[in-house]
Design a binder for these strands. Structure first.
Lengths: 348, 348
DNA sequence: ACACGGCATGAGAGCGCTCTCAGATCTTCT
DNA sequence: AGAAGATCTGAGAGCGCTCTCATGCCGTGT
């Protein structure tokens, strides 16, 4: 690769000199090449490859005010982010969609409160054109920071304030958690289960709350026995513990709806350790239908949500929003809620 | 938040005007504040907070030639990246170390060949100050691109050309895969296993090759029976299939060393499906000791490598390298190889 | 009193790019 | 042939920041 005499990377100027044209013309060629004579364009293209020219992104975004990157903010204080395949799948969907649009993915992990400031500063500094934000808990300060930074934002999972009327109306992608939960619990009932427990996620997340509401719906009009409700915190260990608690509080239970596959894997272990056979003694239904669900013993009946697709939808929504801001500011976009579907295997 | 009259974010100029000083002074305060009188510094600080000023990163890195970000490139064409907790853990280590240094993490996923160009362009465009690169396969074009971009690079796992003398001497962090494999296989032998098979990863990765070499070491001086070697591609499904193949080719096997926990989970399923009891009939040892290893039935004996720590080490090495380039260019850094340790559970 | 060194501050030049606008060139039509 | 229009190209002004260098100010030593 040929460099400029100054030893750094070649600049537009260098390419222009080599091609015998002005900077402006090179710029035009590099950015699409419209309105440049074929012969000149070819000359410039050759100069570009000869010199190994790559536009300097800082200089470009300084003037265009766009960075060609989107920040993905994951706010999980716990080790959960990487233990749960959920995030991975979603990231994958996002990554696919963004690379198709030649947009870069910036991953910002926020674990501590201090990280939160850092993330806020980062967003405000204009490193990204938009934000995808995940797995918010109630009272999370991040949405406010995103709002303050003025960046278009799409949420993964309905934010808590979405329907309260307070705050701006957020753009989000979610699955119909409540309906999925209803399907799961109805399925257990149809199989003859009478004492159906639930292991929930942290209830300050809407997805966890919605699934619990779905559980209630399916039992209505009867009110659920509070001894049949335990919080598993969306982790495998939490699932183990919650299951143990349930067995102690309600030894006669014959079904469990576990609000994530990861927790369900823990619950299955506890059941096995207590000598309960699945599905003969206790029916178990999970939620997510991530790969490991099919690998448990017995294979897990669960509620499928296409997580990768949700990631893709989030990215797509944000990209549309970015384009809309540039071209048709009035355009109203709306949130997406995808359907959930029961997948029956052997656990319940 | 107060904005400038032009509607955009406030600039240095605006802060300077409000504080009644020059741009240069504001810049000094923002970047540490050395050599500015206390009283002036306070005035500037107040102006900064009043206006909600945040430095524009593009402008800054245009002149400093640094971005305050490090790119993490994961080159996995398969769905493996997110199915295997391995990457997640490593990312987590990296993320921790980088945020402590207030450096941003840019995640670049490369799945297709086209992505490779995109990643190369991205790096060359100067979006990052350095690169962390993972899970390379032989003949991967990425290292060459990283090299060409002139960015300091640290590899996760010893790159294939590290000891060949060809190419530049790479900086990497790895575990002692060969020794870990030796420990695993020796353990199986000590437990009386005589026909020990191996399920390898893709052999164009050094980690997979090293583990296979360790397997050979432990059987030496006897040469391994080729019917006892199968490639599981580092995926759970691959592990299932490889195990089935081994059982068909060598029904008398009584031990398996599986080169990743994820593959081992697959192998256990296949063994169960074939009615082989673990560990009574067949002893199984995995590799990685990621969370799910303890959850299999029976819990997996495996080789522990502290993946998160490896991530941290990678980040630390890169950061040192970046500082070295800035301050003491002659400074020689060296790669790190961490120890592996057998963790005995119940599977073998 | 003056010269001198040290410190705090400001003026101004650029970093590499995009984009507007005006000028140059080439068509095409009357 | 000349003018109107369309097409192509270049000059130049910034984008927001950092950093060098010159300048002004102070205290100290002679």
């Amino acid at each position: 690769m040929v460099r400029t005499s100054k030893g750094g990377r070649p600049t537009l100027e260098a390419v222009a000199a080599r091609a015998g044209v002005s900077r402006a013309t090179v710029s035009r060629v590099v950015n699409g090449g419209a309105g440049v004579r074929d012969e000149v364009r070819e000359r410039v293209r050759r100069a570009v490859t000869d010199l190994g020219y790559v536009p300097n992104s800082a200089a470009r975004s300084l003037v265009t005010r766009r960075t060609g990157a989107v920040a993905v903010v994951i706010a999980e204080p716990e080790a959960r982010v990487f233990a749960d395949p959920f995030f991975g799948r979603q990231l994958r969907g996002i990554s696919r969609e963004l690379s198709a649009a030649d947009i870069q993915l910036l991953l910002l992990l926020q674990e501590t409160r201090a990280d939160c400031d850092r993330v806020g500063r980062y967003l405000a500094a204009g490193h990204a054109d938009g934000v995808l934000m995940f797995s918010l808990h109630r009272d999370d300060p991040l949405p406010a920071m995103a709002e303050a930074s003025g960046l278009p934002t799409v949420y993964g999972g309905r934010p808590g304030w979405a329907d309260t009327g307070r705050g701006p109306r957020p753009l989000y992608v979610d699955t119909d958690n409540r309906d999925g939960a209803r399907q799961a619990v109805r399925h257990l009932r149809e199989r003859g289960r009478r004492r159906i427990a639930v292991i929930t996620g942290p209830l300050d997340q809407t997805s966890a709350q919605d699934r619990l509401d779905g559980y209630r719906d399916a039992l209505a009009p009867a009110a659920p026995d509070p001894r049949l409700i335990a919080d598993g915190g969306f982790t495998a260990q939490g699932g183990e513990r919650a299951m143990a608690g349930l067995l102690a509080a309600a030894p006669d239970l014959d079904g469990v709806f576990v609000c994530s596959d990861l927790m369900a894997s823990g619950a299955l272990r506890t059941l096995r350790a207590h000598g309960r056979r699945v599905p003969q003694d206790v029916g178990v239904v999970g939620y997510d239908d991530l790969d490991p669900a099919a690998w448990t013993d017995p294979p897990l009946t669960t509620v499928r949500q296409d997580v990768e697709e949700m990631g893709r939808l989030m990215a797509r929504l944000l990209l549309r929003r970015l384009r809309a801001d540039a071209e048709a500011p009035g355009d109203e976009l709306s949130s997406v809620v995808t359907a959930a579907r029961l997948v029956v295997r052997e656990s319940g």
